[in-house]
Computed example of a mutant assay.
Amino acid sequence: MNNRSFIIISIIIGIILQIIPMPSPVDLYRPDWLLLILIYWSMALPNRVSVGVAAFTGLVIDLLYGTSLGVHSFALSIPVYLVAANYQRLRNHSMLQQIMTILMLCVLYHLIVYWLQYWITGIEFSWLFLWPAVSSVLFWPWLFWLLRKFRRDLRVT
Rank of each mutant, 00 (worst) to 15 (best):
residue 68 S to V: 03
residue 134 V to L: 14
residue 26 V to G: 03
residue 29 Y to R: 11
residue 148 R to L: 13
residue 136 S to T: 06
residue 44 A to F: 00
residue 80 V to G: 08
residue 132 P to Y: 12
residue 104 M to D: 07
residue 99 I to S: 15
residue 8 I to T: 10
residue 133 A to I: 04
residue 17 L to R: 08
residue 102 I to E: 11
residue 131 W to V: 11
residue 42 S to D: 05
residue 150 F to V: 15
residue 115 W to R: 06
residue 130 L to N: 04
residue 22 M to T: 04
residue 16 I to E: 07
residue 146 L to Y: 07
residue 55 A to E: 05
residue 82 L to R: 05
residue 119 W to V: 02
residue 113 V to P: 10
residue 14 G to N: 10
residue 144 F to R: 15
residue 150 F to H: 12
residue 28 L to D: 05
residue 121 T to W: 03
residue 116 L to D: 11
residue 134 V to Q: 03
residue 81 Y to M: 15
residue 88 Q to W: 03
residue 57 T to L: 00
residue 125 F to L: 07
residue 147 L to R: 08
residue 74 F to H: 10
residue 94 S to G: 15
residue 74 F to N: 13
residue 124 E to T: 08
residue 62 D to P: 02
residue 97 Q to A: 13
residue 148 R to D: 15
residue 131 W to Q: 00
residue 16 I to N: 00
residue 118 Y to H: 13
residue 18 Q to H: 12
residue 5 S to W: 04
residue 130 L to H: 01
residue 123 I to L: 09
residue 113 V to E: 05
residue 53 V to H: 08
residue 142 W to V: 00
residue 76 L to S: 01
residue 136 S to Q: 08
residue 56 F to C: 10
residue 38 L to A: 06
residue 75 A to H: 10
residue 75 A to S: 15
residue 79 P to N: 04
residue 50 S to M: 09
residue 117 Q to T: 10
residue 84 A to K: 15
residue 27 D to L: 00
residue 136 S to V: 00
residue 100 M to K: 06
residue 72 H to Y: 15
residue 126 S to M: 10
residue 5 S to D: 04
residue 146 L to C: 10
residue 155 R to A: 03
residue 140 W to Y: 04
residue 128 L to C: 07
residue 114 Y to L: 08
residue 39 I to W: 11
residue 12 I to P: 03
residue 134 V to D: 05
residue 132 P to F: 04
residue 88 Q to R: 13
residue 18 Q to N: 14
residue 13 I to Y: 03
residue 112 I to N: 03
residue 21 P to M: 05
residue 47 N to D: 14
residue 57 T to E: 01
residue 156 V to K: 06
residue 4 R to Y: 08
residue 138 L to C: 14
residue 94 S to H: 08
residue 139 F to H: 06
residue 40 Y to T: 01
residue 70 G to N: 13
residue 3 N to D: 11
residue 95 M to A: 01
residue 89 R to F: 08
residue 74 F to D: 08
residue 77 S to R: 03
residue 132 P to Q: 00
residue 128 L to R: 07
residue 156 V to T: 03
residue 2 N to D: 11
residue 144 F to D: 13
residue 46 P to Y: 00
residue 128 L to T: 08
residue 53 V to R: 01
residue 21 P to I: 07
residue 18 Q to M: 06
residue 136 S to I: 01
residue 9 I to T: 12
residue 36 L to K: 04
residue 105 L to P: 09
residue 49 V to D: 04
residue 67 T to L: 05
residue 146 L to Q: 01
residue 87 Y to S: 03
residue 21 P to S: 09
residue 134 V to W: 09
residue 120 I to H: 14
residue 133 A to P: 09
residue 40 Y to S: 05
residue 98 Q to D: 01
residue 86 N to S: 15
residue 110 H to E: 12
residue 157 T to N: 11
residue 113 V to R: 09
residue 93 H to K: 15
residue 38 L to I: 05
residue 137 V to I: 09
residue 30 R to T: 06
residue 140 W to I: 02
residue 138 L to G: 14
residue 4 R to F: 12
residue 98 Q to C: 12
residue 20 I to H: 09
residue 116 L to H: 08
residue 106 C to W: 04
residue 83 V to Q: 10
residue 131 W to Y: 11
residue 96 L to G: 07
residue 117 Q to R: 04
residue 126 S to Q: 14
residue 133 A to Q: 01
